[in-house]
């Protein structure tokens, strides 16, 4: 039995089944010929089987490769840290940016504490490192003599007040001053 003149060749059927050809005349010829139609369907099924097999093989290869990659990453991330110092340094390495941020913040806080601590420098004394607060004259207390010892002499304490503040005058008079003058 000879094939009809308009029957497509096997090559044409394969091209159509693989999507390499979309000739409408060829499609109509295959649709009109049951044998060609059966060949096309078989070729499509065969192609799907081959593609499925290849995808499964590709998946298997990827899994193996990724498993090896993760093993390498695991080895790097959780490297054996046996000693305490290794753990501490690993922890510092991991949180380096946080620690730097904390240290910078601490420096700023310390600088503020130093600047704002009581007893800032007296504005009247440039460069002064005084730790004492100079109060307005009106708020100042009189000087207090806590102890005074003048062996061989007598002493008198006189308080002076003026616009500039208080002054305690300790006047020491030797007991033998009259004898010296004589």
């Amino acid at each position: 039995m000879t094939p009809p003149m308009n029957r497509p060749s096997d090559l044409e059927i394969m091209e159509l089944a693989d999507g390499e050809s979309d000739d409408p005349d060829l499609v109509s010829q295959i649709e009109g010929d049951p044998e060609s139609r059966a060949k096309a369907r078989l070729i499509q099924q065969m192609g799907e089987l081959v593609r499925g097999h290849l995808e499964l093989s590709a998946d298997a290869v990827h899994d193996a490769k990724f498993a090896a990659m993760w093993r390498r990453i695991d080895g790097q991330l959780v490297s054996p840290v046996s000693g305490l110092w290794s753990r501490i340094s690993a922890w510092f390495d991991r949180y380096r940016s946080h620690i730097i941020t904390g240290a910078v913040s601490a420096g700023a806080v310390a600088a503020l504490a130093l600047v704002l601590r009581p007893g800032v420098a007296d504005p009247g004394q440039p460069g002064s490192t005084s730790t004492i607060m100079v109060r307005p004259v009106a708020l100042r207390a009189n000087p207090e003599i806590d102890a005074l010892d003048t062996p061989g002499a007598s002493s008198t304490v006189i308080n002076l007040d003026d616009d500039d503040g208080h002054a305690a005058v300790i006047w020491v008079t030797p007991d033998d001053s009259n004898a010296e003058e004589l």
Partner: peptide, 23 residues
């Protein structure tokens, strides 16, 4: 060698003035 030993509490910027008469 005549000595004065003194402890005083004074406000900042106030004064203590010690006076020793001389010949």
């Amino acid at each position: 060698g005549k000595q004065v030993n003194n402890t005083t509490t004074i406000e900042a910027a106030d004064y203590v003035i010690y006076v020793q008469p001389l010949a």
